[in-house]
Nucleic acid binder design. Structure first.
Length: 264
DNA sequence: AAGGATATCAACCGCACGTCC
DNA sequence: CGGACGTGCGGTTGATATCCT
């Protein structure tokens, strides 16, 4: 019935994003934020659907993303959380600042799953392979075998001390997992004041943005034309509209530099 | 060195959910 | 209350990179 597609698919580009597209999207979002993803590509001059833009931003362009492989600690946390939450990747990602659900999902499917199997652990049930699986998440699953990950190829687990650290971390209970940092807004997309706040991501992961860095593409894209990074993040964030903001704590669209009439 | 197999991950798809009117 | 709409989520695909023979 008639659910309108998220976008008019005719004439829209698909597939890998080009540097130019990234630049357009980042430039637009940094200047204006996203009030409504549907109109972002139009206003940004992109032949993409809003969904595609959102995904690109969330999974790749967001300033607070960490890049690179998950650390041992992160992997252990993913395993623990997966034991509790199953494939609720967004919830899992919410516990790993700077990581996206997509990234974690991919990492799980390509790395962790394999390693657990190798160890004789069922990646779905977190029990030894061959054992009957309990009904999925009807009851809280048994505490994940914190040791299991460390037993995994010993070479990969760096230090015993590290292992102890991991064990020392209390497991997050499901009711705790749902707790979202106060800055996060599950429906932030309609709130201009929360535009682009990293907490406004699907992962809500980056409420603590202490180690935030621009992802590689930012550097590669020559963002000079979009922003003046100046003396660094501490100096604030300057966008063409003359708006100085802390990119990770506060970002507000610049009404002055924006064609208000363009919004619906 | 070349070709095939496998691994990785960015991106897409479609459904679910929440909100608004 | 129900439908329309926007967004989030999880599963899947496909292009590219890397490894192996």
């Amino acid at each position: 019935m008639g659910r309108q597609p998220c976008c008019d698919k005719v004439g829209l580009k698909k597939g890998p994003w080009t540097a130019e597209e990234d630049q357009k999207l980042v430039g637009f979002l940094l200047t204006h934020g996203h009030y409504c993803w549907r109109v972002v590509p139009k206003l940004a001059g992109l032949l993409r659907c809003g969904k595609s833009c959102r995904l690109r931003w969330t999974n790749y362009l967001r300033p607070d993303l960490k890049r690179g492989l998950l650390s041992d600690e992160e992997q252990q946390l993913v395993i623990d959380l997966h034991a509790q939450l199953a494939r609720r990747w967004s919830k899992i990602a919410a516990q790993l600042p700077g990581r996206t659900d997509n990234e974690i999902k991919n990492h799980w499917n390509t790395h962790i799953k394999k390693k657990l199997r190798k160890m004789g652990i069922d990646p779905v049930t977190h029990r030894p392979l061959g054992q009957e699986a309990p009904p999925p998440l009807q009851h809280p699953p048994p505490p994940p075998t914190a040791t299991s990950w460390q037993q995994l190829d010993g070479a990969e687990r760096s230090q015993q001390a590290e292992e102890e650290d991991v064990k020392a971390v209390p497991l997050i209970q499901p009711h705790e997992v749902t707790a979202v940092p106060p800055t996060a807004s599950s429906n932030c997309s309609v709130s201009p004041a929360s535009v682009i706040s990293p907490s406004c991501s699907s992962s809500s992961a980056a409420s603590g943005l202490e180690a935030a860095e621009w992802p590689e593409p930012m550097y590669l894209l020559g963002m000079d034309g979009i922003m003046d990074v100046g003396s660094g993040w501490d100096a604030g964030f300057v966008v063409p509209g003359g708006l100085g903001v802390d990119p990770f704590d506060h970002y507000y669209p610049d009404p002055a530099g924006f064609d208000q009439g363009a919004w619906p």
